[in-house]
Design a protein around this nucleic acid. Structure first.
Lengths: 351, 351
DNA sequence: CTGAAAGCGCTTACAG
DNA sequence: CTGAAAGCGCTTACAG
């Protein structure tokens, strides 16, 4: 037992075959499809393997199978941010569970220094799940060029791109409707900015949510042009959520409610506001999106939209494995839409 | 461009060789060691490769090299907890950076359903870094049996186990000394409990930190036997940090200071205390350990011990690559000790 | 039920 | 500088 190389070689399939007296074929079957050999052969082989501590070399197996037995998850943000976003982590957990039950591995692919394309081309995976903003055309194309299947979560559903989403437009409508119903008319909306990719601002969930907000706003005669409605952007981090508060407070008419597209950003706001002497919800209300666990830990609890994050991962992964198993064009339904609901806590007050 | 299989085959080294008119050997050299072929050969080959979109199949390459080009990081907690621990994530970031600069991949290995051993035996990695509690003998042995090198972070330095640590005993002494110097004599200490493995409680950083605390306590005539000193355990999660507060408040003598071994737990405490009507630091002080970014976001800021988390990852990875490059017994220094320092904010008050 | 043999796509001594 | 060839350890049609 030492941290350094011990140079004893591992046993190979040849060793097991020789010692057990059976062929390599039989040894392979013993591990992968025991029904194809006799009970006795299997027992003997597995016994020998056991004593020699043998198990098939995964690298050789993958090479032979021409399969990585791994699926990739293209993260929307750098690792350190993605890791700190519980919503994303829930999605990861869901994907991970399915991968594990399928004997696959989950490879996280961060958008490394602007060369997502390179990552996509070379990642050791058989298929990919793309999260959010990253689901743009350029990425989709380069995965397509590689010839592996993929599914998008929070992307732009389209003919060619299988997807898992909630009804973002409706969800945004629901929360904005509740905010307005509580009497708020001076509102700051904080959208998600995205440093990695470009088109996302005018497509995808951002756009759909903005539409949902607008629909609710119009019902009370407001609009993005109204002087009481201002729109900001923030990266999806607590730190940026804090900073955006400072920007919000520079505008002439102080909003009575901050509507965010992410709990993480909302939490940033709730941490910053009291430092500036504003109490939530007495002086200002805040609402979030996602319903991550942490929304229970804020004081007051955060009113938000619940979405089934882990479930999104699970369904995306299942969809992907279904595609991986398919031979040709018999694709089933390639779009999944999950339900959402509002979670009312105390960060939103009547006004 | 479609989410489904396109069945066009990738070009192989044979295609490039045939089309360029050079041998497979030459093609391989063009990618891996251009100095071994002529300028002209290299240009031609790379040109052909470019037009065919060829790059060496990583799976075949790894198989041929008998190397995964990946190093494993054995996490101390389940994925969802590890991901939410910024200290761990900093370590991951450090390891990741070094891996990337070495053209390697980082594989995170969670302690899946108690079968760490199985994970360790089969993980597709060339070497491993073990974090914290997981660095026990059983694990070390099974990695050793596999014959790959490893390094422990926050483990138990020993002859056989290369390690990266801070001086945990001294760090614990330092913070406890400061607490006592501020006049506190009624103290709750919260150690790290660990569901995954057994021996950790009496070994490793836990033990060393307890020793450091004790040394400081003794200087003012206190001891773990003293009625004013109580010791609790908490898993390293915000949720558990919150819960431990409730347990602390059941004891007859209410502590004036809570000394934790992790900022995450300290933050849990700071979130729970005001809910029970106790203000920090007026009614009760809290100190942490690690100095994660989030300690700046608590109100008041958290007094804690800074440790160079990312640096730990960087150095552990470098050490590992050095071992990987070594032939035999010429190991250099296999133990690294990094500096720590106190960070004084406002969560600790005079009493 | 069993086994000989081809094949997966690279790398790399070795000989020229 | 160049190339023919062995080898990495599996899987799996195929023939018996």
């Amino acid at each position: 037992m030492t941290g350094h190389h011990s140079l004893k070689k591992r046993a190979t399939i040849n060793d097991i075959a020789r010692i057990s007296g059976y062929s390599k074929t039989a040894v392979s079957f013993a591990f992968n499809d025991p029904s194809r050999i006799s009970r006795q052969a299997c027992d003997t082989i597995l016994g020998v393997a056991e004593t020699l501590g043998y198990y098939p070399d995964p690298l050789a197996r993958k090479f032979s199978l021409q399969r990585h037995e791994s699926i990739g998850f293209l993260l929307p943000q750098e690792l350190r941010f993605s890791f700190r976003n519980p919503y994303i982590m829930q999605v990861v957990e869901g994907i991970g569970d399915v991968c594990q039950e399928r004997g696959n591995t989950l490879t996280l692919i961060p958008p490394l220094n602007a060369s997502v394309i390179a990552a996509v081309r070379t990642a050791a995976v058989d298929a990919m799940i793309i999260q959010g903003m990253s689901a743009n055309m350029e990425i989709a194309e380069s995965i397509g060029r590689r010839g592996i299947p993929f599914v998008s979560i929070d992307g732009i559903p389209s003919e060619e791109m299988p997807s898992v989403n909630i009804d973002d437009r409706q969800a945004a409508y629901d929360i904005m409707h509740t905010v307005l119903e509580s009497g708020h008319r001076e509102i700051a909306i904080i959208g998600l900015s995205d440093v990695s990719y470009e088109r996302s601002a005018t497509e995808g969930i951002q756009k759909r949510r903005m539409e949902g907000y607008l629909e609710a706003l119009r019902e009370v005669g407001l609009d993005y042009g109204s002087p009481s409605i201002t729109v900001f952007k923030s990266e999806c981090t607590v730190a940026q959520g804090r900073q955006v508060v400072d920007r919000i407070l520079t505008i002439p008419r102080r909003p009575t409610c901050i509507v965010t597209m992410s709990d993480i950003v909302a939490i940033g706001c709730m941490l910053r506001l009291p430092e500036l002497g504003l109490r939530v919800p007495r002086d200002i209300s805040v609402v979030g999106f996602d319903n991550i666990d942490e929304t229970n830990y804020t004081l007051p609890g955060l009113t938000t939209v619940h979405q089934p994050s882990k479930e999104k991962g699970v369904l995306a992964a299942r969809l992907l494995f279904r595609m991986l198993g398919q031979t040709g064009e018999d694709r089933g339904d390639i779009h999944v839409r999950l339900p959402h609901h509002l979670v009312i806590r105390d960060s939103l007050s009547r006004v």
